[in-house]
Design a binder for these strands. Structure first.
Length: 935
DNA sequence: GCTATCACG
DNA sequence: GACGTACGTGATAGCC
């Protein structure tokens, strides 16, 4: 640096946060074309910076410049006054991801970018302005924020960047009625509703100015308050003197902010064309890129329409140290905890993992929390370990060396709920629920499992171990080493803390590293929108549904179990008699031997294992030939299935505390975007047979409530009509015609009126089959018609609706070329087997054809679910279940109609505004005291 | 831990 | 011309 900052130097201090918000509100919600990343505020910010750079050449030219940002919501002022800025709403959702980009933009312009933990931008600006003045130079604050006006004075002016108007002492006096040196007194008295500075009730700027001008300054005024003539005003100043003094502290900017750089480092530098153009191109700002290139007299880099998407995982990670399991810290003192919290606040992001006593989020208790803020630095905070030991009874007592759980949670809660601090987890819905049960609602969140899913659904698992292996090349410590497996398995609470720390902290560090690796891949792979709109927002929505659970009547189930048991016993006797011997009816192996060896019925062996197939298909054929035994076995199997999987198992899933059943939804369970329900699976409760359907009678509403079930009508066929652009199908849906009858009419040339139900049934089978990548063989088996006939149907179908063949061919072609297919909402599904030869190829092709359709339907109901909480917020209703095209709610009797209206509205409009479907979405609704009745 | 079977959309 | 044959799931029981 040439010489010290001083006389003749001019420092420009740009209020970066103000720039961002102005840019955000000034522009429509632009998104980056290639991936839909919200980019409006960044675009406006860059335009403003560019304009600033151009304008500040001549007379106005600064010698030094910096852009100053707010770092996080929490500052030292929150300690003075807990409610400081508490009224301020969180920034808009689509603005949050743009904050880091504005920092990058500033650096790309080669301008110093400054922020500091625990200090507001205003304090940094104040400190730098003071330093500039003391050094004998000048400072110009580029902002119109009234809170900064107290700084105006000798050597410090402000510049309103909108009006391009200088703000000097006169302008300040015009606004506050006093000179800059008394501005804080005015603000202390008048308060500020936006920042939640209390001030003195009933006193505004006008009155404050009057008082200060009369008494000289605030302290004098407060000391002589009893002299004030107006009784009410006098009393207010006496009663609220303390509050006014606190207010003054809140508005008084701090000129002593600890900064670790000198003014000289802020010396003006010209932007480097390559860096700046690189950034602008990456953001895909075409106009500004061209403008900047023109100015620099270089060729504008082209902004590609669709940037090349690097496939697969990143080749090499950052320059990280090896993972060192033995280097982790066990947090056992308050000081240590405080120091981690401070580091996290500074970093603005933390990877978090919870250890618990079990795997069920509704019953497991917290045992410890691990945190990681950077590679090589993670900790474990044990809070629930017990001294176990070999003794069966253990001591059960909390073991030494642990902080109190309430204390830890109390300290972590503000951080975990801080909108400015990102919480990163692997399958964070688990941790979210554990913490939610302890009164903490984490936000904002990121999930490495969901990142991986958005990037590469269909190509490998998304569990921590698989990801660590694939993305980081690191093998994680097996949990078995700690808790054992099988019968001798223990709970994590019984693991020695010294052994728990390496395992738990490693998980947090692996999560952190995965996030560092995966998050930057969203944009080049064009799945940012899918992740942000279809994956990440599902976490709190599903967590709330799962925690709500659904009421189940165990007695109803128990009665059914008894009935099934009796019927099964009767059938078993009959079967044994028909077989001429006793055997285990539930053993396919034994049954096969009875049927095919002993009784000598026709029916071949089945592939690999060499065992006979006794599947329903085979047994049905035998029964149709008039054999009684297979028919009885089919009946028995039906009963057995219902009893073991439903009436028996479901009872064990009723939560003792809530009396309800709490399923768990896996967001990444299906490759297409569908959810998967486990423990128990509530997405396959019987409905197709009368006996099975009665199981749904056990799912009930609490007294005074109803269950409401809403389901999309024919959603996949509608999506097919839209994406394959099939005029006949689209028109039929618009006209509300029976779609299967229409298909039959088109195929067989029969009128829709008075159609033979058999004909319609065949058309229906084809309509469904086509979504799955139909074959003559499959259809013939489904409809039990000769294969040639089935093939003829399919041929006719494609003749009538040629667009479907075109769509299928194009989809397969896309999959072969790209290695993936996409839904109309941007979800990406990898198609790994698509280019292989051999028998597997057919399956991969059909999966590729089906995925964009099933996936788009999944996207639509996800969008509906994400919007639902806000839409039904004012109703006494809860969303409980999702069954692929159906949502189940529980609502107070009186609000049933309102709920149906609200939920149907959300569901039918769920595709918009992202996609304007060319067919309507139709939602059917049913209500009742049980799930059976709601259908 | 794998296979066969069958419940759902 | 042969091959395998409708998409996506999860739970249970039997068996090794």
């Amino acid at each position: 640096m040439s010489n010290a900052f001083g006389k003749g130097h001019k420092l420009h201090l740009i209020d970066g946060s103000a720039f961002i918000f102005r840019a955000y509100h000034a522009l429509p919600p632009l998104t980056r074309k290639s991936d839909g990343l919200p980019i409006g505020a960044v675009a406006g910010f860059c335009n403003m910076l560019w304009k600033y750079v151009q304008d500040s050449k001549g007379d106005m030219a600064p010698t030094h410049v910096a852009v100053i940002f707010d770092h996080s919501a929490k500052t030292f002022r929150s300690d003075l006054y807990a409610d400081y800025k508490a009224n301020r709403p969180p920034p808009p959702e689509d603005l949050v991801p743009q904050f880091p980009l504005t920092r990058e933009a500033t650096k790309a312009f080669n301008i110093a970018c400054i922020e500091l933990e625990n200090f507001e931008a205003d304090d940094i600006i104040a400190t730098l302005a003071c330093q500039a003045r003391e050094a004998g130079g000048e400072a110009v604050i580029i902002s119109s924020d009234k809170d900064l006006m107290q700084l105006v004075g000798d050597g410090v002016t402000m510049l309103d960047p909108i009006k391009n108007k200088e703000i000097g002492p006169e302008e300040v006096e015009e606004k506050f009625g006093v000179g800059p040196d008394r501005v804080v007194d005015i603000q202390a008295l008048a308060g500020d509703s936006v920042d939640n500075v209390p001030g003195a009730p009933g006193i505004g700027i006008k009155t404050a100015a009057l008082l200060i001008n009369e008494y000289g300054d605030l302290e004098t005024l407060l000391a002589r308050a009893d002299e004030i003539k107006q009784p009410k005003r006098r009393q207010t100043l006496i009663d609220f003197a303390d509050q006014i003094r606190v207010s003054k502290q809140l508005v008084q900017l701090d000129c002593e902010t600890p900064l670790d750089f000198t003014l000289e480092t802020l010396e003006l530098r010209d932007p480097e064309p390559e860096t700046l153009l690189g950034f602008l191109t990456e953001m895909e700002f075409r106009t500004l890129t061209n403008r900047v290139a023109e100015k620099f007299e270089v060729e504008a880099p082209s902004v590609p329409d669709t940037p090349a998407a690097p496939q697969g995982e990143a080749a090499a990670g950052p320059d990280w140290p090896e993972i060192d399991r033995d280097g982790y810290e066990t947090v056992a003192t308050e000081d240590a905890l405080d120091s981690w919290i401070a580091r996290i606040a500074e970093a603005g992001a933390v990877a978090i993992d919870t250890e618990t006593t079990g795997l069920n989020e509704m019953t497991a208790d917290l045992v410890g929390i691990s945190l990681c803020v950077e590679a090589g630095s993670a900790c474990y905070i044990p809070v629930g370990h017990v001294s176990g030991g070999g003794d069966l009874f253990g001591s059960g007592a909390k073991s030494d060396g642990q902080l109190d759980m309430d204390l830890v949670l109390g300290k972590l809660k503000p951080l975990l709920e801080d909108a400015a601090i990102l919480k990163i987890g692997q399958n964070i819905k688990y941790d979210w629920k554990i913490l939610a049960r302890l009164g903490i609602r984490m936000t904002p969140i990121e999930d490495t499992m969901l990142l991986s899913y958005a990037l590469s659904a269909g190509d490998g698992g998304h569990g921590m171990d698989a990801l660590s292996e694939r993305v980081l090349g690191h093998t994680t410590m097996p949990i078995k080493d700690l808790i054992g497996s099988g019968k001798s398995q223990i709970g994590f609470e019984q693991v020695e803390i010294a052994k728990a720390t390496p395992y738990a902290a490693e998980d947090a560090e692996v999560t952190w590293r995965l996030w560092q690796m995966l998050r930057p891949q969203l944009s080049p792979n064009r799945v940012t929108t899918a992740y942000e709109t279809l994956e990440r927002p599902m976490v709190p929505v599903l967590a709330d549904m799962e925690m709500a659970g659904i009421k189940v009547d165990p007695e109803h189930l128990a009665r059914m179990s008894n009935v099934f048991a009796q019927k099964m016993a009767g059938l078993e006797d009959e079967i044994h008699e028909l077989a001429g011997q006793k055997f285990n009816v539930g053993s396919p192996k034994q049954l096969g031997e009875i049927l095919f060896d002993k009784m000598g019925l026709a029916g071949g062996k089945q592939g690999k294992t060499g065992a006979y197939s006794t599947s329903a298909d085979v047994l049905e054929d035998l029964a149709a030939e008039g054999h009684d035994l297979p028919a009885r076995v089919l009946d028995w199997r039906g009963m057995s299935k219902l009893k073991s999987t439903y009436t028996d198992a479901l009872q064990t899933h009723v939560n003792a505390d809530t009396g309800r059943v709490h399923t768990s939804y896996s967001i990444t369970g299906a490759q297409t975007g569908r959810l998967a329900s486990t423990d128990p699976n509530l997405q396959n409760i019987p409905i197709r047979t009368e006996e099975g359907r009665r199981i749904r009678e056990a799912f009930i509403a609490t007294p005074g409530h109803r269950l409401v079930a809403l389901d999309y009508s024919q959603i996949e066929l509608r999506i097919l009509a839209h994406v394959a652009d099939i005029p006949a199908l689209k028109q039929a849906f618009r006209d509300g015609i029976d779609i299967h009858a229409m298909t039959a009419s088109q195929m067989f040339g029969v009128p829709i009126e008075g159609m033979d139900p058999m004909i319609r049934r065949q058309a229906k089978a084809i309509n469904f089959g086509v979504i799955y990548g139909i074959s003559g063989f499959g259809l013939s088996r489904n409809l039990r018609i000769p294969r040639a006939e089935a093939q003829a149907f399919i041929d006719t179908y494609f003749e009538r609706f040629p667009e479907i063949r075109a769509y299928m061919d194009k989809t397969v072609e896309d999959a072969k070329r790209d290695g993936f297919v996409r839904t109309i909402f941007g979800r990406r599904i990898m198609t790994p087997g698509i280019n292989t030869k051999g028998p597997a190829a057919g399956g991969a092709r059909r999966a590729a054809i089906n995925a964009p359709i099933q996936g788009a339907a999944a996207d639509i109901i996800r969008r509906a679910m994400i919007r639902m909480p806000a839409a039904i917020r004012d109703l006494p209703a809860k969303m409980l279940l999702q069954v692929h095209d159906e949502l189940v709610f529980e609502v107070e009797d009186k609000a049933v109609d309102d709920l149906v209206d609200a939920a149907r509205g959300v569901m039918e409009g769920a595709a918009e505004p992202a996609v304007k479907l060319s067919v309507p979405l139709v939602v059917d609704a049913g209500t009742g005291e049980s799930w059976a009745a709601a259908h």
